[in-house]
C-alpha cells in the first residue's frame, strides 16, 4: 500500500483548479499579511503597551485552541488522502472529526470573547486599563479582535465547505476518481490553520511575566 500511496501522491503537473485555488490562497496570504503588517507597525510604536496588554489574553484558551486547530489540520489532510486512496468511509469519519474540531475551536473562541468582554478588554468600550499606556493597550486589543475575528470568519466559511464535502463524500458525489474538491477544501483549511500558527505567538506570547 505504501508504494501505491506514493504513486498516487506524487504528481508533476498541477491541475487548473489547483492553480486557481493557490492564486486565491496567495491573495489570502496578502490579506492577512496586511493585518500582520498593521500589527507590527503598531507594536513598534507601543512596545510596552503591547507587552502589558498581551498578558491580559487567556494563554490556556489560546493554547488549547492552537492544539485543536493543528490537530484538525491533520484529520483534514488524512481525510483527503483517504478519499484519494478510495477509503470512503474513513474519509467521512475524518471529515466529521475535522468538522467537530473546527466547531470546538469556534466554541472556545466564543467563550474567550465572552471572558474578554466581561473583563472590559473591548477597546471601544469601558476599557479595563487606564493611565499612560491605556491608548497602546486599546490598540493591541483592537488588533486582537480584528485579527482573531477575520480568522474566525474564515474558519466559519471553512466549516460550511467541510459540511458540503462531508455530505458529498457520504453520498458518493466525491469519490476516489473525483476527489479534487475535497483536496482543495483541505488546502483552504490548512491555510486557516497557518494563520493561527502566527496569531498565537504574536497575540498570546508577547510577554509572560
Amino acid at each position: 500500500m505504501s508504494a501505491s500511496a506514493e504513486a498516487v501522491g506524487r504528481r508533476a503537473n498541477d491541475t487548473d483548479s489547483e492553480v486557481g485555488l493557490w492564486i486565491f490562497l496567495a491573495s489570502e496570504v496578502m490579506f492577512f499579511g496586511l493585518l500582520f503588517y498593521g500589527y507590527t507597525i503598531t507594536r513598534i510604536n507601543h512596545p510596552q503597551a503591547f507587552a502589558d496588554a498581551s498578558a491580559h489574553t487567556d494563554l490556556l484558551l489560546g493554547s488549547v485552541n492552537a492544539f485543536v486547530l493543528f490537530t484538525s489540520s491533520l484529520t483534514m489532510a488524512l481525510a483527503a488522502r483517504s478519499l484519494r486512496l478510495g477509503a470512503q468511509r474513513a474519509s467521512v469519519r475524518l471529515l466529521a472529526a475535522t468538522l467537530a474540531l473546527g466547531i470546538l475551536f469556534l466554541a472556545i473562541k466564543c467563550y474567550e470573547y465572552h471572558v474578554d468582554i466581561e473583563s472590559h478588554l473591548v477597546p471601544w468600550g469601558d476599557f479595563a486599563v487606564s493611565g499612560r499606556l491605556a491608548g497602546g493597550e486599546r490598540l493591541f486589543f483592537f488588533m486582537y479582535f480584528v485579527m482573531t475575528g477575520a480568522h474566525a470568519i474564515h474558519l466559519t466559511v471553512g466549516l460550511g465547505v467541510l459540511s458540503v464535502m462531508l455530505v458529498g463524500v457520504a453520498r458518493g458525489t466525491y469519490t476516489e476518481q473525483n476527489s479534487q474538491a475535497v483536496e482543495l477544501a483541505a488546502l483552504y483549511w490548512a491555510l486557516v490553520d497557518t494563520v493561527w500558527i502566527f496569531l498565537y505567538p504574536i497575540l498570546y506570547l508577547v510577554h509572560r511575566p
Binding site: 504528481r11 498541477d14 489547483e18 492553480v19 493557490w22 496567495a26 483536496e183 490548512a190 491555510l191
Partner: peptide, 21 residues
C-alpha cells in the same frame, strides 16, 4: 505547507504561486 498542503508533491506553477504570496 510542505506536507499538509502537499507542496512537496506540487508542480512548479503552484510552488511559484505559494512563494509569490
Amino acid at each position: 505547507w510542505t506536507f499538509f498542503m502537499r507542496l512537496r508533491w506540487s508542480g512548479l506553477l503552484v510552488r511559484l504561486i505559494a512563494v509569490t504570496g
